Simulated assay, not measured.
Amino acid sequence: MTAITIYHNPACGTSRNTLGLIRNSGQEPTIIEYLQTPPDRATLLRLIADCGLSVREVLRQKETPYDALQLDDPKWRDEQLIDFMLKHPILINRPIVVTPLGTRLCRPSEEVMEILPQPQQGAFRKEDGEAVIDAKGQRIEQG
């Protein structure tokens, strides 16, 4: 088995769909419920860097204290934004998935397929019913 880790929030549909796609590839990941077990500073910095994103791109705005903390103010430096994420892990956007092929913020959930070491094993539908993988394990292109 290949080592896959998902920084997961079970209350998040995108995170649940991403976990489902990982499992649909025949893999069982290590699941870190990051709201209960937040990453430390070094791990968070490494995840952000490995995703190739800026700190602001990993900062979740929706359903968080983002507005109350006025984090849209450009005065906040990356180090300070990381401090906020560590104090309020809900500010860390999710899910972040780590595989031997890379690290990715999987929004939308289909992003995970780009870094899975094994192909999809069969049909998969998101929780909302949207078909994303056909019976042959092939991605269904939307639109």
Rank of each mutant, 00 (worst) to 15 (best):
I92K: 02
T18P: 03
A123V: 13
E111S: 10
G20T: 05
K75F: 08
V58N: 03
L47C: 06
E127V: 02
I115Q: 03
R23W: 09
L21C: 10
E130P: 04
V97K: 00
L86I: 08
M85C: 08
T99H: 00
G129L: 05
L19R: 01
A123G: 14
R94P: 05
D128Y: 11
L101V: 04
A42S: 14
K126E: 14
Q61C: 13
G143H: 10
R107M: 04
R16N: 04
D83R: 11
M85H: 07
K87Q: 15
I48S: 02
D78C: 11
T18C: 11
G137M: 11
R56C: 07
R41N: 08
Q142C: 03
K136T: 15
L86C: 01
L59G: 05
E28R: 02
D72Q: 14
L44S: 01
L44C: 02
I115R: 05
I31W: 07
I115A: 04
Y7H: 12
K75W: 05
E114I: 06
E79M: 09
E63Q: 13
Q61M: 15
G26Y: 00
I31F: 06
A42L: 14
W76L: 05
K126W: 05
E28V: 04
Q70H: 15
A3F: 12
R104P: 01
F84Y: 14
D73C: 09
S15P: 00
Y66S: 11
F124P: 04
E130L: 10
E127K: 07
R56V: 04
L86K: 01
Q61V: 15
K75C: 12
I115E: 03
G102K: 06
V132N: 02
G102D: 07
L21I: 10
P108R: 01
Q121F: 08
D128P: 00
V112K: 00
R23P: 04
Q138V: 10
L105D: 00
A131N: 11
E127T: 11
R94F: 03
G52H: 05
L19T: 03
F84N: 09
D128E: 09
D83F: 08
I22P: 03
M85K: 02
P100E: 10
V112S: 02
G102S: 03
E130C: 11
L35C: 02
S109P: 05
E111R: 15
K75G: 01
F124H: 08
T64N: 08
P39Y: 10
